[in-house]
Write a protein that binds this DNA or RNA. Structure first.
Lengths: 214, 214
DNA sequence: GTCTATACATCGATAGAC
DNA sequence: GTCTATCGATGTATAGAC
């Protein structure tokens, strides 16, 4: 997903990358003000001291801009969770992880939208950007395993818990901490359930679904 | 949020309302095909045999169309959950409620987006439409109270669980039932936690009932 | 790389005739 | 209510000067 002509010399490449970062940062600012889907390329260009066609030296299209923002947001996410202090008790570490993720979403609604909701028609992360998202996912999964969670179903439940807390936080108390406060209890509730089921790992309860499983 | 000039005679009002319903239905179809934000008023008008400006006889703006869709989706939601069979055990009823809500979201991604995510820039439900959403919320809360949940914090956790299951279902397995299948276990996990925290722990079933819902 | 200039298709929205 | 005609703004894209 390289833009148009990638700069040749190191010096030029450096400036190119720097300018690209300011464009992405300004795009975030516009998205926060008007909404993610309402970013105007002409206004974005103005904000970074360029004319609209010049943006095409950095992005092939508007979707490519969203792609860069997607990767950028996921890098922020990785940065935040890797900065968390190590805990002897992996369960306590899990609590803090979930609290931090909920805070992260609460801090920036549109960032949460781009990263976790499919809100832009036609947008799909490029392989490179998707790899960043998977890196985050791998880190989270590793912490889960440390806390003794390995069953796929258990993992699905955990992702549901986290996405539920973050979504409610963003939707009903953006900038606040109403669901951040519930994170500890939710994680402890979850770990209690996991501990309950690991005694008999063979018998997996399944919901009487009306649809036949695939 | 009445459109432009509300029809005067009963006959005209009737046709107006009927046509309005077909417009909303066709808007859903377009949204399913191209995405919620990608609805084109010109194409919508074509689909219902009108020219684009004529749509303004039914909606003051595009946002007013979204508002009508929002109310419509919430009415569908109320219809679905009120159609659920009565259960002697309110806990079993809660399980089925959550399963049904997750199925509801899985069945229509864009409907879930409009109802539960803030994805359209500038859109905010009108008081009339918001009242429909609150009616749904009141029904859900009533069932929760029947199951012995009344604490506000407990309620916040429940909404997080439901929104998490539905969101994961929509985002990662649209049309499927991967998180629908986890609904029972999540609800039982939740009820166990509630029972643990209440001062007077009632009879908590240790093992879940295998009673099939239907 | 960035500019000016221009082009095209599409969009939501409005004015005014009927 | 529905139409035609039109508006301003948008995203997208290209050509060519510097």
């Amino acid at each position: 997903m390289t833009p148009t002509p990638t700069p040749t010399t190191d010096r030029r490449r450096e400036r190119h990358t720097a300018k690209l970062a300011t464009i992405v940062a300004e795009a975030w600012a516009l998205a926060r003000r008007d909404g993610l889907a309402a970013i105007s390329l002409r206004e974005l260009a103005d904000q970074v001291g360029l004319r609209q066609p010049s943006l095409y030296a950095y992005f092939d299209s508007k979707l490519a801009l969203y792609d860069a923002m997607f990767a950028d947001g996921n890098r922020q996410l990785i940065e935040v969770i890797t900065a968390l202090p190590e805990r002897d008790d992996p369960r306590e570490g899990l609590v803090e992880l979930v609290e931090e993720l909920t805070r992260f979403s609460s801090a920036d609604t549109v960032r949460h939208q781009l990263l976790f909701q499919r809100t832009i028609p036609g947008f799909e992360p490029s392989p490179a950007s998707y790899a960043v998202a998977q890196e985050f996912y791998a880190i989270g999964q590793k912490r889960l395993v440390s806390a003794g969670v390995s069953d796929p179903g258990d993992l699905d439940i955990f992702t549901a818990l986290v996405s539920g807390l973050t979504h409610q936080q963003v939707a009903n108390d953006p900038g606040g901490d109403r669901w951040v406060q519930q994170s500890r209890r939710v994680v402890e509730m979850y770990l209690a359930e996991i501990g309950r089921s690991t005694k008999a790992p063979s018998t997996v309860r399944k919901s009487p679904s009306r649809k036949a499983p695939k």
